[in-house]
Nucleic acid binder design. Sequence first.
DNA 1: AATTTCCTACCTGTTTTCCGGTAGTTTCGG
DNA 2: CCGAAACTACCGGAAAACAGGTAGGAAATT
Lengths: 213, 213
Amino acid sequence: MSSQAIQIAIADDHPLILEGLQKLLEAAPGMEIAGCFGSGRECLEFLQSSHADILLLDIALPDASGLDLCREIRNIAPATRILALSNHSERSMILQMLQQGASGYLLKNVAADELIRCIREAHEGLLTFSKAVREIMAKPSATELRDMPQLTRREKEILLLIADGKTTTDIASMLHLSPLTVETHRKNLLQKFGSPNVASMIRLAVQQGLIQS
Amino acid sequence: MSSQAIQIAIADDHPLILEGLQKLLEAAPGMEIAGCFGSGRECLEFLQSSHADILLLDIALPDASGLDLCREIRNIAPATRILALSNHSERSMILQMLQQGASGYLLKNVAADELIRCIREAHEGLLTFSKAVREIMAKPSATELRDMPQLTRREKEILLLIADGKTTTDIASMLHLSPLTVETHRKNLLQKFGSPNVASMIRLAVQQGLIQS
DNA sequence: AATTTCCTACCTGTTTTCCGGTAGTTTCGG
DNA sequence: CCGAAACTACCGGAAAACAGGTAGGAAATT
């Protein structure tokens, strides 16, 4: 039988929400509250010693950024699926939580039945979103797809090598070019990105997906 | 009535798959094939002049990277929802396609009814995945969450400023520190990341979510 | 009380980047 | 065939980063 109650932990600094969620989930069949926490620290301490199947995580806790917390939790309790619960509806925030290993993302205005559905799905090992989040993610606002510099083949090639920590001379010898040529490409890259130095250029490039893992 | 047939474009360099998809979707009620393309260039040309509601996009076309293509398509045809169709099942690839504005992601082994469901959902403005993709996304492999350096408050602060393109002297005056102190922090950061220079450090930091947009 | 960690600050010297140009060749589309 | 990109290559000088140290004081932990 796979039908033991799903153990749920909740972390939210808003006592009202915390209590509301607790009441709601206690009433749901097949779910049990393993613990409720008002801060990231409490939550981490609990997960170090105890188990939860699902963690409903408010990503705006006072003592820790949601991204950091998510990462830490995945380290100390890899079996716990994290459902991010948030008021933030920006695409970038959602993507970053996923990157940090969240198994789902819900806006706080989620309806009770949707919340329960998402918990069930997450417990089945599926990525899950509330409908509002799916709508946000499917419709990137025009402004969020910002103008990205048009790079030539050579420039992309060199950008990757720069991002990899290679120096101009390294790159020159790898590509059988003059270091001065590589310098020129680097200059053009900086100009296209409008960056004063590689640090900010690489940041932009990675954020815009020009550089893969 | 909202019940005109969904106009679907397909881009895939594998003729067999292309034809298979075409046949399959022509047979589906409420769907029409607007065009089939074997290369990114053809596909772009078509979308510049004609409309499609949904684009099934193989992200491994010979003449363009899926990420670039996705971005370009979103620029020239923002109303077209892109469903990525791929053999790649890496989390990072999926996340990056989403970042570039894809409305969904399907593995090529997707079943016909699942494909049709996903097209319908995408057309309704919802983010959509095949079940296999949802499973992959919900279960980040331990190796993908790689060991991330433990940074102190000051170090994080300075890391952000470096990523923003600030120089050592800039940072020093912003934080009312000696430039030499900032240099020390920078050195410690480089060491913690194991990077030879800021370019590769910033790349790692952004990829690991230490630096937000 | 002792240890560790963090933050601060310094020194010297080398390497690399950054900035501002110029310019010849190839390649590709109109 | 002409123009526009793209790729290649160069120069000189200023600014910044990088490397490998040392070191004192504060705060937290043991």
